[in-house]
């Protein structure tokens, strides 16, 4: 199968989630006897294209009309690249940007789409996808009844791909600017984030729940512990709804899906919604006052206690160990 990987980038470097999509693409190409090509869209996209070419040969659609990234025009270019290149599969990360634009690509290419893929196999030359349903309570195996196929994969389920021994070729892709829709204008972008990594990119995620009473308490406990681990700070929906933490910290079905090496749930009871976002973490630790809280059922280690007492002790011990 010929597989095209949609690379998300920040103007320079390829995003980690896209390297997970690349892992899927390489696996599929290997299992079916095929090849992988990357696709970079943007304006002044030379740096991103060079970074992508460290992994695979890339097509680059470089045009001022493609920045900032908007689903309508980007989907048009991606769908045209799939059609003209004769690709069997186009894959990208199941990020908010990936779901937005690749969903539209799926609509342009006939609807053969599998979202949030967490595993795959090849049976009789056909791709079967594993994907969660019902907030992760069920795992479905699905087949797509034709193609070209559009796939988004969860980065937590596919290890990011490594660079190739030799860089790939960079081929410009002509963009028919006149045919692109101009019906959406970006009027404001999110402020760039501070020092901590994103929850989806970190090896350690320290998350806080309802037990925390204020943003200050969250920062001096959950945030401080995340920093000591060199990890990310996450949050349950309850804290976001209470205005204590920002939306983008939310882990869960309606937030971000994570699977770090270590997940610390501090004062999180463990609603199904939250468990859906973190239950595949390698080691899960919960600290909660209520011994019957559902979070303990998915945890490897637990401490029953008040987070306001236990967490400062943990911080103290970690600082002492570091010193």
């Amino acid at each position: 199968m010929k597989v095209l990987v949609h690379f998300e980038h920040d103007g320079g470097a390829i995003k980690r989630g896209s390297l997970s999509a690349l892992r899927f693409a390489r696996d599929v190409a290997e299992q079916t006897g095929g090849a992988v090509t990357g696709l970079v869209l943007g304006s002044d996209a030379g740096d991103a294209a060079s970074d992508a070419a460290r992994y695979v040969p890339v097509l680059v659609a470089d045009d001022t009309a493609l920045k900032p990234a908007i689903a309508g025009p980007h989907a048009r270019v991606i769908a045209d690249a799939v059609t003209s290149g004769g690709f069997d599969v186009v894959v990208g990360a199941a990020t908010s940007a990936g779901k937005d634009v690749l969903g539209r690509v799926g609509g342009l290419l006939g609807g053969f789409m599998a979202s949030d893929v967490v595993g795959h196999e090849v049976a009789d030359g056909e791709l079967l996808f594993r994907r969660p349903m019902f907030a992760g309570s069920a795992i479905a195996t699905v087949r797509l009844c034709g193609g070209p196929q559009v796939v988004t994969v969860r980065d937590a389920s596919y290890e990011p791909s490594d660079a190739a021994a030799e860089p790939g070729a960079i081929t410009p892709l002509a963009v028919d600017t006149g045919s692109l829709p101009r019906d959406v204008e970006v009027t404001g972008t999110p402020p760039s984030q501070g020092g901590r990594p994103d929850v989806t990119e970190a090896q350690v995620v320290v998350s806080g729940g309802r037990a925390w009473k204020s943003s200050e308490d969250f920062e001096t406990h959950v945030g401080a512990l995340a920093d000591l681990f060199g990890g990310a700070a996450g949050s349950s929906r309850a804290l976001v709804d209470a205005g204590i933490t920002p939306n983008e910290l939310q882990v869960g079905q309606t937030g971000k899906i994570v699977a770090p090496q270590l997940y610390l749930a501090l004062g999180i009871s463990g609603a199904v919604q939250h468990l859906a976002g973190m239950r595949n973490s390698k080691v899960i630790v919960a600290i909660n006052e209520d011994r019957d809280a559902p979070i303990f059922q998915v945890s490897n280690y637990g401490i029953v206690g008040d987070v306001y007492e236990v967490v400062p002790l943990l911080i103290e011990k970690l600082k002492a160990a570091d010193a």
Binding site: G302, I303, V304
Partner: peptide, 19 residues
């Protein structure tokens, strides 16, 4: 366009060691 071939409801439960 998309058919479910199989569905499973795995248990996410682990044995928690209380410390």
């Amino acid at each position: 366009r998309c058919e479910i071939v199989a569905l499973e409801v795995p248990s996410a439960n682990r044995t928690c060691a209380f410390l």
